[in-house]
Design a protein around this nucleic acid. Sequence first.
DNA 1: CACGCTAAAACGAACGCTCGTTCTTGACAA
DNA 2: TTGTCAAGAACGAGCGTTCGTTTTAGCGTG
Lengths: 198, 198
Amino acid sequence: MTDDDRAGRRAAIMAAAAGCFAADGFHTTSMADIIRASGLSAGAVYSYFRSKEELITAVAGLPLANAEAVFAALPADDAAPSPAEAVAALVQGVVARAADDPALGVDITRLAVQVWGEALRNPEVRGRVSAVYRTLRDHCTEVARRWQAAGNLPPEARPDEVGAAMLGLAQGFLLQRLLLDEATAEGYIAGATAVLAH
Amino acid sequence: MTDDDRAGRRAAIMAAAAGCFAADGFHTTSMADIIRASGLSAGAVYSYFRSKEELITAVAGLPLANAEAVFAALPADDAAPSPAEAVAALVQGVVARAADDPALGVDITRLAVQVWGEALRNPEVRGRVSAVYRTLRDHCTEVARRWQAAGNLPPEARPDEVGAAMLGLAQGFLLQRLLLDEATAEGYIAGATAVLAH
DNA sequence: CACGCTAAAACGAACGCTCGTTCTTGACAA
DNA sequence: TTGTCAAGAACGAGCGTTCGTTTTAGCGTG
């Protein structure tokens, strides 16, 4: 079995687990659920992941990596989007990733919410979440900084604080889309834009 | 035993459970944990709550009721606070409730995050969460409506959409305070205000 | 006041079941 | 034949829950 084969199988197990975790949370899905979803046997799964906790940690990384990709695309090259445009891009990024990722077959935003809860009790997950979220905020901060440099933000405003608010708007949309059925990207973007427009 | 005694004991069990749930999530705290924390016996706890699920449902209501109280105080009488002032009040409300409630001894915002995760898998919790969050958003919408009526918001802006963004800002702060240690209320309020100021 | 009775409340050992994990077995490829 | 990997039965631990027993509190009676 080649390394690629092994990596592919590992990814398939993670995808199966991600589906279970997104539907039922980390601690109510049983290993039997994951084993069934993966189509493999217990022994096979346990030869790729030493324990359920290792699987949780690995799967928890998926929405974090995804978010990092969306946010990293924000301050593209030397463009200077407005905060409103940036938040719009983030919200659309959330929606795009929420449509079940074909490589994963999961609404990864549901997984993100489970990761938030897990971060409150699992120090390893907590550490990775705060590291990633700090960089997400920094990407937003960079947008605010450029916007300020272009003279569109009062000089006394602090870009890092504006960045935190932008991140908050994106996180709030992720949540509202999942918990308030009628929350739409367009409406939220319009509201955020009205609120961000000067 | 009077009805008040029974209600008090029930509340004490809920407080003990809330502490466990806030620290470890709903599904990794065992009934044994809750029983130990309550200082009662298994039989006593089960005479107040038929099952663990009933206890989860009851405790999940605590942060919802709390949030409703904070948001209901927003559009006080016929005052017309700006969206920025309203968000500042919400953020301060989050912080105030986060300091361990003396009647409960719990950071109720941690519980809120667990409730978000539970809402994704438990239809009863989900229903109550979306009902409550709709009213929270409506309170924000009312603030936006009054602000618009006072001529401070462009006439083409839709108050409900602005309300959703305000709610999102509050939710984002709740999350960042828990997951990004250095998130402060003052900084977030300043950022949100810069973003909301016209 | 003392006593014994009763109902309510709490107790906690015990139960059946499901969990996460291991390990023996067998099948297949080289 | 030998080495590799998946299969899935089996295991002990720990789960949520029950239920027979003990404790407590209050009342009526002598």
